[in-house]
Design a protein around this nucleic acid. Structure first.
Ligand code: MN
Ligand code: MN
Ligand code: ZN
Ligand code: ZN
Lengths: 149, 149
DNA sequence: TATGATATTGAATGTCAATGTCATGATATA
DNA sequence: TATATCATGACATTGACATTCAATATCATA
């Protein structure tokens, strides 16, 4: 984590950038969360630690991480995009339309078939997006609700 | 085509709607095109025939077709969504990042593997989105340019 | 440490696709 | 044709995201 932060900082300064407290805070919270966050969600979590960090800076920092290859932009068609760490291996997503939770899977056979399909169409693939939408296990067997009474 | 228009009209009036000249025009141009159109693109094509059809009506008509199951909303992350006829069988898409062209493919083995993945995760799938991005054959072997001189 | 060049900040504003509002026009039914 | 109600097109509004800008933070150099 500290190591990651230092590495990112050095890449930034190699590109003529300077380090900043706000950005460090945003980056740390982002990687610590390990989730698939919207900018709004991340902004809230960051502000819980440092009240006066602006949303624009969160947007800028995620764009920066994405340019440097440390984050990936995701779009599940929710109206706001999400970001995830790109430090993990490639994977695709299961999106629960009930609770909004996003989980991950790897399926090499699907990856292979995609290449095959592309080749068959004379197409040179550079990336793909695959998301499966549905209901997650937790939403399928609803817990006995904690009633407030 | 005429048949399709009549069927849609009857569904609309069954739901308490009325027929309209603008809407008929939009629907006809949409299904005739057979492509994956943004609202802007469709609006242009419609306006070439009928100068004074408003963009709002095109938005409304596509939403309506989508509610009735005659059109599908697509989102390739371009900033504007596209619509396609849903009269064809289910398929996924190849999107050329060079020329923007969208082509289609069916791959039952991928469909099957998706169900398998979902099941493995205790997930009940309702839909999926798969798009492969890359360079299409036409963009790979660029034609000798027609120079103007 | 003090200086100055320059990158970064947060707030405000701009942009753009999509949706909402509303007065007017079109359509169905008797 | 009268009446009710739906649909239209112009325009305003929304919401995510990008950009602008004056103030501030960072950093190499003296
Ligand atoms: Mn993920
Ligand atoms: Mn298609
Ligand atoms: Zn769920
Ligand atoms: Zn192409």
């Amino acid at each position: 984590m500290k190591r990651l932060l230092r590495q990112i900082d050095s890449e930034i300064s190699a590109l003529g950038g300077k380090r900043s407290r706000s950005r460090a805070s945003i980056i740390e919270v982002f990687f610590r969360s390990g989730r698939h966050l919207t900018v709004d969600e991340l902004t809230s979590e960051v502000r819980a630690r440092n009240r006066d960090i602006g949303a624009a800076t969160v947007y800028r920092t995620l764009k920066l991480l994405s340019r440097l290859g440390y984050a990936k932009e995701l779009d599940f068609g929710e109206g706001a995009r999400r970001y995830e760490s790109s430090l993990t291996a490639h994977h695709d997503h299961l999106v629960c339309t009930g609770c909004g939770n996003v989980s991950e899977f790897e399926e090499p056979r699907i990856e292979r078939l995609q290449d095959e399909v592309a080749k068959k169409h004379g197409f040179v693939p550079t990336m793909h997006r695959l998301a499966i939408y549905g209901t997650c296990p937790r939403c399928l067997s609803p817990q006995p609700r904690e009633t407030a009474e």
